[in-house]
């Protein structure tokens, strides 16, 4: 298909989104990710039955923490798509990139940049598949 998606996305592979933990998501933001989205299989299609459903719950839980600490839960999202949905993958990658661009860089970088003058480097996003 050779579809292209925004180059700012870093993909971190996991065996199943059920492996994605609250701590992984928080650590991504600690390491400077501007946004994170979890790309799980379609609901009902999980090879391990409920991995993607668990991931969604953890994402929702983490969103609340991010809201509480001033990072913003909207920087984190859960999507479901199948391995056969290349165009949908691209669509989501673009959608999320646009959303994060509007929100600006991760607030921890904004603070650090007060001294270093944050240069307009392309924002880094992480995507867990």
């Amino acid at each position: 298909m050779r579809l292209s998606y925004p180059p700012n996305i870093k993909i971190i592979q996991v065996p199943c989104t059920g492996k994605v933990d609250v701590l992984y998501l928080l650590k991504s933001f600690q390491r400077g990710a501007d946004g994170v989205y979890v790309a799980g299989c379609m609901e009902g299609d999980c090879h391990y039955l409920t991995g993607n459903l668990r991931a969604r719950k953890r994402v929702e839980f983490t969103k609340k923490i991010l809201d509480e600490i001033g990072i913003g839960g909207e920087r984190l999202e859960m999507y479901n798509m199948s391995a056969a949905q290349g165009p949908r993958f691209v669509e989501i990658a673009k959608e999320m990139t646009e959303r994060i661009k509007k929100l600006g860089p991760n607030p921890i970088k904004r603070v650090a940049s007060a001294a270093l003058e944050y240069s307009a480097t392309p924002e880094k996003k992480e995507c867990v598949v």
Partner: peptide, 19 residues
Amino acid sequence: EKEVGILSAALSLARETDG
């Protein structure tokens, strides 16, 4: 141990956000 990790990450992120 897990909650220690989560709370520490959250506190650290919040404080970094506040400068």
